[in-house]
Simulated assay, not measured.
Amino acid sequence: MQTPATTLDPAGDSAPWSSLWVPRLLSLLRIVAALIFLLHGTQKMLGFPMPMGGALPQLFSLAWWSGAIELACGVLLLVGLFTRAAAFVASGEMAAAYFLAHAPRNLFPTLNGGDAAILYCFVFLYLAAAGPGPWSLDALRRRQA
């Protein structure tokens, strides 16, 4: 027996399910990616969690700038403020990180440790195009305007 079109059924007629959950899952993707990305920034800039080797990057070094971008963009993405711009900058930083730090080590991302950088790059590129989703300060600002 076929289910009615109003049933929340992702396997069948998914229009009602999609219209309800796709925007929310976009927000959830943004929040989770931002939290993990933010941890990279806090590790480099604040020493939490303690970086391997225990040392923070030298002021204004490439690693310091990387941490500053990860911290600032991570916070903005987490709350969904200026999401498209922050995601675009974060995507570019992850592309640069891959080609500067990972690709020279080995051709294969699973061997050079760059698989997370590639994934972040494309998740953030998607967020730059798709926007923050409904659970964001950007959406709240739009509703108030």
Rank of each mutant, 00 (worst) to 15 (best):
M1N: 11
Q2T: 15
T3R: 15
T6H: 12
D9Q: 05
S14W: 13
A15K: 12
S18M: 08
L20Y: 08
W21C: 00
W21V: 01
V22Q: 11
P23D: 00
L26C: 04
L29W: 12
L29S: 08
R30M: 07
I31E: 02
A34F: 08
A34P: 02
L35H: 04
I36E: 15
F37N: 03
F37G: 00
L39T: 12
H40Q: 10
H40C: 02
L46T: 06
G47H: 09
M52N: 12
M52E: 13
G54T: 01
L56H: 06
L59D: 12
S61I: 08
S61N: 01
W64Q: 02
W65C: 03
G67S: 06
I69L: 09
L71K: 00
L71S: 06
L71P: 01
L81G: 08
A86H: 07
A87W: 03
F88I: 03
F88D: 00
V89E: 12
V89Y: 11
S91F: 06
S91T: 04
G92F: 02
E93S: 14
E93L: 06
A96S: 10
F99W: 15
A101E: 08
H102Y: 14
P104Y: 15
P104M: 12
R105I: 14
N106Y: 15
F108M: 12
T110I: 13
T110H: 11
L111P: 02
L111N: 15
N112G: 10
G113Y: 05
D115F: 13
L119H: 10
L119R: 11
Y120A: 07
F122H: 12
F124Q: 02
F124A: 04
L127E: 07
L127A: 07
A128C: 08
G131M: 04
P132G: 13
G133V: 01
S136C: 06
L137T: 09
D138Q: 05
A139V: 09
R142V: 14
R142Q: 15
R143N: 10
R143Y: 10
Q144K: 14
